[in-house]
Simulated assay, not measured.
Amino acid sequence: MNFVRIKYKKIISKALQIVFPIVLGGIILVYMYQGFNFDRVWEVLKDDMNYWWMFLSLVFGVLSHVFRGMRWKLTLAPLNEYPRTSNCVNSIFISYAANLVIPRVGEISRCGVLAKYDNVSFAKSLGTVVTERLIDTLCVVIITAVAVLMQTNIFLTFFTKTGTKSDVIESILSSSNFYITLACIVAIFVLFYFLVKNVAMFAKIKGIISNIWLGIISLKDVKNINLFILYTVAIWASYFFQFYLSFFSFDFSSNLSIMAGLVMFAVGSIAVVVPTPNGAGPWHFAVITMMVLYGVGKEDSGIFALLVHGIQTFLLILLGIYGLVALPLTNKNKKL
Rank of each mutant, 00 (worst) to 15 (best):
F228P: 03
I169Y: 10
S166H: 07
R5F: 12
V287I: 08
D136S: 05
L74G: 05
L316M: 15
G323N: 07
I92Y: 09
I143F: 06
I142E: 01
L100G: 08
S210F: 11
L56E: 08
V120D: 01
D221Q: 12
G268W: 02
L24W: 03
S257M: 05
V44M: 10
V66Y: 08
I28V: 14
V62G: 08
I225T: 13
A203R: 14
G69L: 00
L195K: 10
V222N: 08
I22L: 15
S171C: 05
G163F: 02
G302W: 03
N278Y: 09
I11P: 00
L100D: 03
F3G: 06
L256E: 00
F20G: 03
F36K: 08
Q34H: 11
L173V: 07
V274Q: 06
G61I: 04
V44C: 07
S246D: 01
K161V: 09
V4W: 11
D221H: 14
L173M: 04
I169S: 10
V273S: 01
V59S: 07
R133C: 01
T313P: 11
A200Y: 09
V23D: 09
K335I: 15
D221Y: 13
V222W: 04
I92M: 14
A147R: 00
L100V: 04
T152C: 06
N224Q: 04
F314N: 05
V274W: 10
E81I: 13
M70I: 10
S269F: 03
Q151D: 06
F252N: 02
T162Y: 00
L74N: 06
V274Y: 11
I209M: 12
V186I: 15
T144N: 05
T157N: 07
A187V: 04
A266L: 11
I27N: 05
D300Y: 05
E81A: 12
S254Y: 03
T160A: 07
S218A: 15
W53G: 06
S257E: 04
A15Q: 09
V41G: 05
M290C: 06
I142H: 00
